[in-house]
């Protein structure tokens, strides 16, 4: 086999434009919406749960701290595919009996949410704990209680600092949403990866995977650049010129903050 033949074979395996063209309408109609629903729903739920975990993690109540610690250690320590299978298959029958629904879709969202909550909780906790203690003290000195002081002053600053890490977590979530295929979703519930996988197995050609890859990259690369943009913005702040203090101007030397 010479080089030209190898390239030709690879081209046929991965870049069969006809196979790619055939799978794209289904990607747009079914795969993309499902990936977005899975990622956004579990991203939102995971963020809310993550904030609860973070606040428990820094609470003065040792029981709350312990629960947050154990939850985080377990969910972060398991392979995502195992968590999805255990939650999807384990709770499936219970949900089926309670609601009559046979769709594993809600369980897929639940599994992804619970997993990302563990990561997001740690992100929030580190952000909140990095806020200077003087901020809480100054807010309380004005007469705010602990709760309002955290909500109005400390938490917003902590969250702002970890926005890049948070967006990275959303990128991870988009990718991990592909693992829900292990639950055997209905045809209308399949996301980008499984649409590609189905098409690949019926056609015997790997090009649909390439189509799936393009869809994932179209979602994740802009987010990656968004992270970099926020990161830069947070580092340098809005460009604004510092002015010397007028008290200092009398002395004749510009003030440094």
């Amino acid at each position: 086999m010479d080089l030209q033949e190898i390239l030709k074979q690879l081209g046929e395996t991965f870049l069969d434009w006809k196979a790619i063209g055939e799978v794209i309408p289904k990607m747009f109609a079914v795969g993309l919406p499902n990936t977005l629903v899975l990622a956004i729903a579990s991203g939102v739920i995971g963020t809310v749960l993550g904030m609860v975990l973070a606040l428990m993690g820094i609470s003065r109540n040792p029981v709350a701290r312990w629960i947050a610690r154990v939850y985080t250690d377990i969910l972060r320590g398991l392979p995502p595919v195992l968590t999805i299978l255990v939650i999807g298959l384990g709770f499936g029958p219970i949900i089926r009996q309670l609601s009559g629904s046979t769709s594993p879709y809600p369980l897929a969202v639940a599994a992804l949410s619970l997993m990302s909550a563990a990561y997001i909780g740690e992100i929030f906790r580190s952000g909140i704990q990095s806020v200077d203690k003087g901020q809480l003290e100054a807010t309380r000195a004005l007469g705010f209680g602990y709760g309002p002081a955290m909500r109005l002053v400390v938490v917003p600053q902590g969250v702002r600092r970890v926005l890049p890490a948070l967006v990275n977590q959303f990128i991870a979530l988009i990718k991990e949403s592909s693992l829900v295929f292990v639950l055997g979703l209905l045809a209308s519930e399949r996301e980008i990866f499984q649409i590609g996988k189905d098409a690949a197995s019926t056609s015997g050609n790997l090009s649909p995977y390439v189509a799936a890859a393009i869809f994932y990259l179209a979602l994740t690369i802009p987010l990656t650049h968004f992270v970099n943009w926020i990161d830069r913005r947070l580092r340098t702040g809005r460009p604004e010129k510092k002015e010397p203090d007028e008290a200092a101007a009398v002395v004749g030397k510009g003030a440094q903050a």
Partner: peptide, 12 residues
Amino acid sequence: DARPANLSGGQQ
């Protein structure tokens, strides 16, 4: 309407 970071220590 400035941010504290754009003020000198005395102004802050």
